[in-house]
Design a protein around this nucleic acid. Sequence first.
DNA 1: CTAAGTGCAAAGAGTTTGCAACAAT
DNA 2: ATTGTTGCAAACTCTTTGCACTTAG
Lengths: 124, 124
Amino acid sequence: MRATKGRQAVLAALDEASDHPTAEDLLMRARKTDPALSLSSVYRILKEFHDRGMVRRHVFTQGRAVWELAQRALHAHLIDVHTGEIVELPEADLVRMYEAAAETLGYRLRDVRLELYGERIDRG
Amino acid sequence: MRATKGRQAVLAALDEASDHPTAEDLLMRARKTDPALSLSSVYRILKEFHDRGMVRRHVFTQGRAVWELAQRALHAHLIDVHTGEIVELPEADLVRMYEAAAETLGYRLRDVRLELYGERIDRG
DNA sequence: CTAAGTGCAAAGAGTTTGCAACAAT
DNA sequence: ATTGTTGCAAACTCTTTGCACTTAG
């Protein structure tokens, strides 16, 4: 895999992200490093990273995908059904249990996505 | 809500489904009851059912949405990363714990989606 | 009757792809 | 030099919408 400007820029944007960026978010952030970068390259780069297991891809109910570095610990996503805001909920303790459950069915676990959909209690 | 042929047909298709049908799957099945039904009506009907809390909508990594009756018990989805096949994994015991976790963060839980991505052990 | 619901075709959103130009090795 | 990578524009897939027609209540 060649060390191109685009790949370095997207990788840096992923590494710096503390939220859950879409491809377009990553494009805007990566352009600080590589101003000529295009959206189609971002998609191609993300697909390649994903194929190599470097990133996780999530599709929440809003329809567009969000991306995060696979090296981050597995965690649950709590999603506000009104605003789409995503809150993280660490759940490291549960992962072993999920692995066991999957194995019971004859599967090797590759990713866990626990998503809780809710609404803030203080605004009905 | 008027009891139209389309709505009855989609509801019956959802009720009979033991898998995770897409809008197009539901169209094909519902046409047994209402042969003139169109895909746009299926989407409108599903949107209305969803707004009324009658169905749950999931978007897995494949990009298209799948639908199920909300009256079904919450369960986890174990998804084969190679084939896209969806296996169900009941988890009723865990729901209370998730509700508590969400409430700790000030949210009222509306839906739980636990998705395990794996691959069959017997084929690498 | 008449508002709600529908089919059709066109529009939207997000993502992917063909191709000629370009750049990392 | 050579092969992988890119930007652009067009294509694609899934979903939504505008509009005139239809139908349930």
